Computed example of a mutant assay.
Amino acid sequence: MLISNLEFMTGRKVTKHLGLVQGSSVRAKHAGRDIMSGIKNMFGGELTAYTELLQESREEATERMIEQARSVGANAVLNVRFSTSSITAGAAEIYVYGTAVILDESET
C-alpha cells in the first residue's frame, strides 16, 4: 500500500477515487510515565515517554487507515494528514485520514 501526503503521484495515474479513509487511536497517559515526565519537566528536555506514546498511537491509527483502504480495494492513500486532539484530561486522540485511490500499475 502506497501512502503519501501528496495529492498525486508523479508518473502514476489515479484510475479510481474510492473516497475518504481514516483511522484513529485514543491513548491515555500511564501513571508511571506521568510521574517520570513530571520530574523531567522540572529539569527540561524531551519527554521520551510521551514521544513513544504518540509514535505508537500514530502507527496504530495509520494501520487502521490502511486496513480501511484495503477493504475498499485501494492500492494507495493520497493526501494523508494527521490531527491530534485532547479528548479529556490525560487522554488524546491521533486521527489520520486520506483519499483511497487505485493507481495504475505502470510507472513512467
Rank of each mutant, 00 (worst) to 15 (best):
D34V: 10
G11M: 03
V26M: 07
L103T: 14
A91F: 04
E56R: 14
R64H: 10
S83Q: 11
F43Q: 05
I35E: 11
A61T: 10
A61D: 11
G44N: 00
K29R: 11
F8E: 15
I94H: 04
G73N: 00
R12P: 04
N5A: 00
E56T: 10
L18M: 03
R81I: 05
R64N: 09
I66G: 01
L54C: 07
A91V: 06
F82R: 09
T15S: 13
L47D: 00
M1F: 12
V14T: 00
T15M: 07
Y95A: 12
A28E: 13
Q68F: 13
E63M: 15
M9W: 05
S71N: 10
Y95W: 13
L20H: 09
T88Y: 01
A91D: 06
R81V: 03
A92E: 08
S71H: 12
R64L: 15
V77T: 02
K16G: 01
M1L: 07
S86I: 08
G98W: 00
Q68G: 11
R70L: 12
Y50D: 06
T51W: 11
E105M: 05
E46W: 08
A92V: 09
G38D: 00
G19E: 13
I66Q: 13
L54T: 02
S85G: 11
N75V: 14
T10I: 06
L6C: 08
A92D: 08
L78W: 02
E52M: 07
E7S: 11
I3A: 01
E7V: 04
V96Y: 07
G90F: 07
S83E: 13
M36Q: 11
V26Y: 03
R64Q: 15
M1N: 07
M36H: 10
T108H: 13
G11F: 01
D104I: 03
T99N: 15
I94F: 04
I102V: 03
E67P: 10
A100Y: 14
D34F: 06
T88S: 15
